[in-house]
């Protein structure tokens, strides 16, 4: 699941979603790319809020396969601009213009 964040004249965020990797896209009807609009916020969005938004707007069925508590479930790695989110502050990271967020499920087959 790839999420490219754009900020548009303080009105809303436009998300360019491309869903990929490790079968995470299967939770989202197998769609690899689509565009969505995120409502404006007084504060910048952080990853924690983004996860809630994804759950409410993109992932209505079987959320347990994607989230656990207020974070992603074990076995999903979150990338912010091609870097492990652990390097970026994890849930507290504030989304910025042109950010690229990816959710990868770890593969185990061989």
């Amino acid at each position: 699941l790839t999420l490219i964040v754009c900020q548009n004249s303080h009105v809303y965020y436009i998300f360019d979603l491309s869903l990929c990797s490790g079968g995470a896209e299967l939770l989202f009807n197998g769609v690899k790319e689509h565009h969505v609009t995120l409502p404006s916020h007084s504060e910048p969005w952080d990853i924690k809020q983004l996860l809630v938004w994804i759950q409410q707007n993109l992932l209505k069925e079987r959320p347990e396969l994607f989230v656990q508590g207020d974070s992603v479930r074990p076995g999903i790695l979150v990338l912010i601009n091609d870097a492990d989110w652990e390097l970026m502050g994890e849930l507290d990271y504030k989304l910025q213009d042109q950010d690229n967020i990816v959710f990868i499920s770890t593969l185990h087959g061989g």
Partner: peptide
């Protein structure tokens, strides 16, 4: 990277999910 294992129901194996031979 993965301090906790994934819930077993979220793990897909090759015999269920399939795999194109050239990928491995």
């Amino acid at each position: 990277l993965y301090p906790r294992p994934p819930p077993p129901e979220t793990v897909t194996n090759c015999s269920d999910g399939g795999v194109l031979g050239v990928v491995p």
